Computed example of a mutant assay.
Amino acid sequence: MKELQLFIETRYWRLLFFSFLAAFTMGCEKEEVETTGLDVANASVKALNTVKITSTGMNFIAPEEIPSGWNTFSYLNKTGEPHFFILVKIPEDKTLEEYHEEVTVPFNNWLKTWREGAPVQDPGIALWFFTDAVNTGGSGLIDAGETAVTSINLQPGNYIIECYVKLPNGDFHSVVGMLDQIRVTEEGSKVKEPKSDVSLIIDGNGMTMEGEVKRPGLHTFSVDFIPGSAADVHLVRIEDPEGADRNQLNDWMYWANIIGYEKEGLMTPAPAGFSFLGGSQELAQGGRTYFQAVLKPGTYALISEVADPMSSGHYVEFEVE
């Protein structure tokens, strides 16, 4: 297992995971949940071209093309469990079907052998994924019936959109349909870069929040990713600050935690006592993204999907009065 863990912790392995979940599009519809709009900025986004993405089950309903430049994504989760989306820029000549067959399927199959105690072997993932696939942002985890709002500056090209939260049986959501392909065109958007009132920095030492959130209401978070960092950020409301098991949240946030055991990392159901309100996926090459959320008085945390975020500096807790 030591050899396996060393392999997992490399930058290329993490990049591998973020993009392996691709192209298979099965329906698996779930009962829709009415959106409350209480915890995330929904209609509050004022942009000329808000890109609407919706999940009604294990799927993404998304446009085929969007302009390059700044885009504000409004991701509505009309399912009964948390999801997110990540955008992965892939080579121009690669299709959704190739991504599925060469990245998603072999990774998911390899994970099954890991649960069974098999030795470390070549998972069979295409080499182009390690050299030519780039994580370019996306939404943080968002609860059932809610909307995540994220702004990303995108270059023209070919992108995969996916969710790799796990089903109770251990399969990634992408394997049962949570993936799609989006073309970012040469035509530029007319949206200007957002303005933030809360600033986050993610680097090799962890996550830092500059300033304080002093009031409830709508807030826009900027997230600066230092090149080489391999962490994202998820906004979580701690519903019961005294009784919530933060250690359980800490363990659940890392996809590779306790593979093969109960409550495996990122496997649904999510830990009780926490509400997921969005955030931002990582930018592998550095840069800045934004996300919005409406905060009510209470206790919140910003947490990354890394091994042991609370001990590695990737956890920030704060109060809203």
Score class of each variant (00 low, 15 high):
Ser139Gly: 08
Ala144Val: 01
Leu38Ile: 15
Leu76Arg: 12
Arg14Ser: 14
Ile125Glu: 13
Gly188Met: 11
Ile8Glu: 10
Val176Lys: 05
Gly137Trp: 02
Leu283Ser: 02
Gly188Val: 12
Ile182Cys: 03
Ile226Asn: 11
Phe84Val: 03
Glu81Ala: 12
Lys2Thr: 13
Ile202Pro: 05
Glu210Asn: 10
Met207Leu: 15
Ala118Tyr: 13
Tyr290Leu: 03
Glu31Met: 14
Lys89Asp: 01
Ala270Glu: 15
Gly243Leu: 10
Asn109Tyr: 08
Asp143Cys: 07
Asp308Ala: 06
Asn59Lys: 04
Gln281Tyr: 04
His173Ile: 00
Glu193Asn: 01
Asn49Thr: 04
Gly140Lys: 04
Glu321Leu: 11
Gly286Arg: 07
Lys263Leu: 14
Glu162Val: 01
Glu101Asn: 09
Thr268Arg: 13
Ser55Cys: 04
Leu277Thr: 12
Ala62Asn: 01
Leu295Val: 04
Ser312Trp: 03
Gly279Pro: 08
Asp251Ala: 15
Phe221Gly: 06
Pro168His: 08
Pro216His: 08
Val316Trp: 05
Ser280Trp: 02
Met310Cys: 08
Phe60Gln: 02
Gly140Ala: 07
Tyr315Trp: 15
Val233Met: 10
Lys190Leu: 09
Asn153Ile: 01
Pro82Asp: 04
His100Val: 02
Gly287Ala: 03
Glu29His: 14
Thr150Tyr: 01
Phe17Arg: 14
Gln292Asp: 08
Asn205Glu: 12
Leu249Pro: 07
Asn135Ala: 15
Gly69Pro: 01
Phe318Ile: 11
Pro227Gln: 06
Pro269Trp: 09
Lys94Asn: 05
Thr54Arg: 11
Gln121Leu: 08
Asp197Trp: 07
Lys195Leu: 09
Tyr99Trp: 09
Glu242Gln: 13
Asp39Val: 14
Leu266His: 08
Asp251Val: 09
Leu295Asn: 04
Pro194Phe: 01
Lys190Val: 00
Gly279Tyr: 08
Phe318Tyr: 11
Asn205Leu: 08
Met209Val: 11
Glu32Trp: 06
Asn77Arg: 02
Pro297Gly: 09
Trp128Phe: 15
Glu262Tyr: 15
Pro91His: 06
Glu146Trp: 04
Gly117Met: 11
Glu92Pro: 06
Trp128Thr: 10
Phe60Leu: 06
Leu295Thr: 04
Thr25Ala: 15
Val149Thr: 15
Arg11His: 14
Asn42Glu: 15
Pro123Thr: 12
Trp70Asp: 00
Ser229Leu: 07
Gln155Met: 06
Phe225Ile: 02
Ile160Pro: 00
Thr104Trp: 03
Gly228Asp: 10
Lys112Phe: 09
Glu317Ser: 13
Gly211Phe: 09
Pro216Asp: 09
Val134Lys: 07
Leu76Cys: 05
Met310Gln: 13
Phe60Ser: 01
Thr299Lys: 13
Asp143Gly: 13
Val236Arg: 12
Gly298His: 08
Ala47Lys: 05
Lys52Tyr: 07
Tyr290Asp: 04
Val51Ser: 00
Thr289Arg: 03
Arg11Trp: 10
Ile161Phe: 01
His83Val: 03
Thr95Asp: 05
Gly145Pro: 08
